[in-house]
Amino acid sequence: NKASVVANQLIPINTALTLIMMKAEVVTPMGIPAEEIPKLVGMQVNRAVPLGTTLMPDKVKNYE
């Protein structure tokens, strides 16, 4: 099972992601793969992401 990116804290809307905000966890359904964490640093979320929520591609601005 592959790990996904999960919010390590509440991430407010329009916040630029940092390493400390994210952790890798095996979750269902799968979100953004954990190996993409370095790519996500500096990207902004387009909505608030509660603690423990899986980061889905549609929650990150300009994620492809």
Rank of each mutant, 00 (worst) to 15 (best):
P12Q: 08
A24V: 08
P12H: 07
I37E: 02
T15V: 10
L10R: 10
E64K: 14
V45T: 09
V45C: 05
P29W: 08
M22R: 00
L51I: 13
A24L: 07
T18A: 09
V49A: 03
M56D: 07
A16Y: 15
K59E: 15
V5S: 01
G52H: 05
L51N: 12
T54Q: 01
V5N: 03
E25L: 14
A16H: 13
P29I: 08
P38L: 10
M30T: 10
Q9D: 04
K2D: 09
K39F: 13
Y63N: 02
M56I: 05
P38C: 13
Y63P: 04
L19M: 11
Y63T: 03
E35S: 14
Y63R: 00
T18M: 08
T18G: 04
P33D: 09
V45K: 00
E64N: 14
L51H: 13
N14E: 08
I37A: 04
I32T: 00
Q9G: 03
L17Q: 00
V45R: 02
G42T: 03
A16R: 14
A3K: 11
A3H: 09
I32V: 03
I11W: 02
A34L: 05
S4I: 03
P57H: 06
E25Q: 14
V5M: 01
V49D: 05
L19P: 08
Q9K: 09
D58R: 05
T28R: 11
V5Q: 03
A7K: 06
N14D: 12
M21Y: 05
V27D: 00
G31I: 04
T53L: 05
V6W: 05
V41C: 08
T28A: 12
L19K: 09
G52V: 02
M21F: 05
M22P: 00
L51C: 14
E35L: 11
L55A: 02
P29Q: 06
Q9R: 12
E36I: 07
E25S: 11
P50T: 08
G52P: 01
N62K: 07
K2F: 12
T18W: 06
L51F: 14
K61G: 04
L55K: 03
N14I: 06
I13E: 14
G31W: 05
K23D: 05
T15R: 05
G42W: 06
P57I: 04
K2P: 12
I11K: 01
V60E: 03
T15D: 01
L55Y: 00
K61M: 12
L17T: 00
T15H: 03
I13L: 09
A48P: 12
G52C: 08
I37Q: 03
M30A: 13
A7N: 02
L17Y: 01
P57E: 03
K23G: 09
K2Y: 14
I32D: 00
T18P: 00
N1Q: 14
P57M: 05
A16K: 13
E35M: 11
A48V: 12
A34M: 06
K39T: 11
V45G: 01
E64W: 13
A48C: 13
P50E: 11
E64V: 15
P57L: 01
L17N: 00
V41K: 01
M30E: 12
D58K: 04
E35W: 14
Q44A: 08
L51A: 15
E35P: 07
M22Q: 00
R47C: 15
I11M: 05
N1I: 14
N46G: 06
A24G: 10
T54N: 03
T18D: 02
V26H: 12
A48W: 10
M56Y: 09
K59D: 15
Y63E: 01
A7L: 04
L19N: 06
A7Q: 01
I37K: 00
D58Y: 14
G31F: 02
L40V: 02
M56K: 02
K39Y: 14
E36G: 02
V41I: 12
N8T: 15
I32W: 03
K59T: 15
V6Y: 05
T28Q: 12
V60A: 01
I37G: 01
E25A: 14
A16M: 12
N62E: 09
I37V: 02
G42C: 08
Q44T: 13
S4F: 05
I13T: 10
P57T: 02
T28I: 13
G42E: 03
G31Y: 03
A7Y: 06
L51D: 11
T54F: 06
K2M: 12
I20D: 12
T18K: 10
E64T: 14
P29L: 07
K2G: 15
V45D: 04
K23Y: 08
Y63V: 04
M21W: 05
E36T: 05
N62V: 03
G52E: 01
N8R: 14
M30W: 10
N8A: 15
N62P: 02
A24F: 06
P50D: 08
L55Q: 03
L10Q: 10
P57Q: 04
V49I: 15
V49W: 06
M43S: 04
N62D: 13
E25F: 09
T54D: 04
K2H: 13
E35V: 13
G42A: 04
K59Q: 15
V41H: 02
K23Q: 06
N62T: 06
I37S: 02
L10C: 15
L51R: 15
I37M: 12
P12M: 07
E36Y: 11
Q9E: 09
Q44Y: 15
G31L: 05
G31A: 04
V6K: 02
A48H: 11
V26L: 11
A34N: 03
V41M: 05
V41D: 00
I11Y: 04
I32Q: 00
L55V: 06
N62A: 08
K61P: 03
A34F: 06
M43A: 05
T53R: 07
P33C: 12
V6M: 04
S4C: 08
I37T: 01
I13F: 07
N14P: 00
V60C: 05
P33L: 10
A24Q: 06
L10T: 13
L19D: 03
E64R: 12
V49K: 04
I11C: 05
E25Y: 10
M56P: 00
P57G: 07
T18Q: 10
E25G: 10
I20V: 13
V60Y: 01
A3C: 12
G52F: 04
I13R: 13
P33H: 06
G52L: 06
N62S: 08
T54L: 05
Q9P: 03
T15A: 10
M56C: 10
L17K: 00
V27S: 03
L10F: 15
Y63G: 01
D58I: 05
M30L: 12
V41P: 01
A7C: 06
A3W: 09
V45F: 00
G42S: 01
I13N: 10
V60Q: 02
M56W: 06
I37D: 00
A16F: 15
L55R: 03
Q9C: 15
A34D: 03
G31M: 03
K23F: 07
K39Q: 11
K23V: 10
